[in-house]
Amino acid sequence: MSADRIAVMDETAVRRAIARMAREIVEKSGGSPTLALMGIQRRGVQIAALLREEIERAEGLRVATGTIDITLYRDDLEAIGPRPVIGETVLPPGGVDDRVTVLVDDVQFTGRTARAAMNELMDWGRPARILLCVLVDRGGRELPIQPDIVGRHVEVLSGQQSVEVMVPELDGRLGVDLVYSRPEVA
């Protein structure tokens, strides 16, 4: 591992956190049989899959999952430009109406992604309740939106560091790194 990144969580730590988060989801949803997990594209999808496995294994509950892509609900189209690749939004079987729906993301930062995801979810239907669940809360909120379930809080030096979550499907391993961003060379 290069000097400009520090491991914050290794695979064991992530799996431990997932196990705890799974329990909290079940508790907070009151063991609802209508529970649905919606992974936010892209790495939220993998985190949601891990949570689902854990809940199904530990609780014996069947959990519906779906994915949500917030590209079209972002508020910074003109700043970043359009992304030609838009991920898929797939509802859990039966939709989200009247379900306890858990939005799952890898990292929470400004809160804008969660805002966009909630707006999109509302366009899809009327969930009974929405919970927000993230593996890492790195602080730096720009909107008053706080997660209900958090794997780990990580202190990040604004502008100098960022948090990266690695998942096996995309990155070949499971873990969380703190990455030092180099100052731009003029």
């Binding site: 892509d69 079209l72 359009p82 690749v85 838009i86 366009d123 899809w124």
Partner: peptide, 22 residues
């Protein structure tokens, strides 16, 4: 890129609320 981008947009027309705020 246009054709690929059109794929997810097909699905919006199938939604109950056929509208995104982009």
């Amino acid at each position: 890129a246009i054709l690929d981008t059109a794929e997810p947009f097909k699905e919006i027309s199938e939604r109950r609320i056929k509208k995104v705020p982009v």
